[in-house]
Design a protein around this nucleic acid. Structure first.
Lengths: 188, 188
DNA sequence: CGACGCGAGTTCAATGAACGAACCGACCTG
DNA sequence: CAGGTCGGTTCGTTCATTGAACTCGCGTCG
């Protein structure tokens, strides 16, 4: 077991999974990807992760087919990282882990996840308790809960305050310092 | 962020969860606990984890209330580590992660997990697709699948070959070297 | 044209965690 | 009393993470 990231002798599919998503920061990157974060810089400011580590994780995840790198403008060349189907298949894991953390280690709920068509809060596994079906990711609406800081420092967290669908690409407005005047013909 | 294990600025219940179960080896320890492993030495030989790391993880997990330390004999004093309710609540996470690993990174299935009363293989969240209910852990039977090594080196893996229920305490027979004669009044 | 800025990284020294081998102490067994 | 087992701790080495500084391509402002 030379490297620190392989669970060599473990004959178990969970060990294989952990070799990919079990490293520090990785699952938070994936959570952000579900929230709609796609750009290197947005991951960076939202997570407070060291640049080198973020670059390494994005490489690993694209290499494993969890994220796909997708060019969204040519000049200057810019790529964004989006969840593949394989990555989207991690939603039950992410959901159940976050729920476990909330139930056992958080007092107040930070975010709501609801089945958009009917407004019901998601069950433990990402299903809709009232409809009884597994909810497609695009039908999941996330909204701030009572425990969430409503005026966070970083612009990514601010952008994530608005109600939104999972996977919906995040648009971060320019980071004008607090108190500057935003009243300049900017379309609503 | 002095320490390496806290995701300080993350205002998210998943970050809280990851501070506990996100360290290297931790989730494999928990998986083994679901399989019925309870003793320091059994974790040690089954995982191939460094002793110091195992001791540290068991301390963290008992401190977080995921495992409970339970004395099972007085002389010499010996404790075993068993999943608390909080720990058992991680089953959907463990199940969904293992399933993700199997679907995306393993060819053949290593273990089956079935709803014992009806024999149906569990769904992605630990539910029984035919009964439609969440299966209590004690009703989950695990059996070797086609991909599993049938004559593993270590005695813990050998003990885990027999069909068993989740959480059922694992009994490891003495580790007589391969080829030694086991025909000595040992009850079946 | 030149200065400056931005996004997306890479490089580097310092620190912290993991590794594996050795050691330890309480207890039991031959 | 010699040896073995279980459940650790200690320790030197190796590997990963951190944060700060630097780079590079490109666009923009004056």
């Amino acid at each position: 077991m030379a490297l620190g990231k392989d669970y060599a002798a473990q004959e178990c599919s969970m060990a294989r999974a952990l070799e990919i998503i079990g490293e520090r920061w990785t699952l938070l990157v994936i959570r952000d990807a579900f929230y709609g974060v796609r750009r290197y810089n947005d991951f960076l400011v939202h997570l407070g992760i060291p640049r080198a580590v973020l670059a390494a994780r994005l490489r690993t995840l694209t290499g494993a087919g969890v994220l796909a790198r997708h060019r969204y403008q040519e000049s200057p060349p810019r790529d964004e990282y989006v969840l593949t189907e394989r990555g989207q298949a991690l939603w039950p894991t992410v959901r159940s882990l976050a729920l476990w953390g909330r139930v056992h280690f958080t007092e107040r709920q930070l975010r709501h996840f609801r089945h958009a068509p009917c407004g019901t809060e998601l069950g433990p596994y990402g299903e809709c308790p009232s409809c009884g079906t597994v909810v497609p990711l695009g039908d999941i609406e996330m909204t701030p809960g009572p425990g969430l800081d409503l005026s966070p420092e970083d612009p990514v967290s601010r952008a994530l305050l608005a109600p939104r669908r999972l996977l919906q690409p995040l648009v971060v407005e320019a980071d004008h310092p607090v108190g500057s005047d935003p009243a300049e013909g900017r379309p609503v």
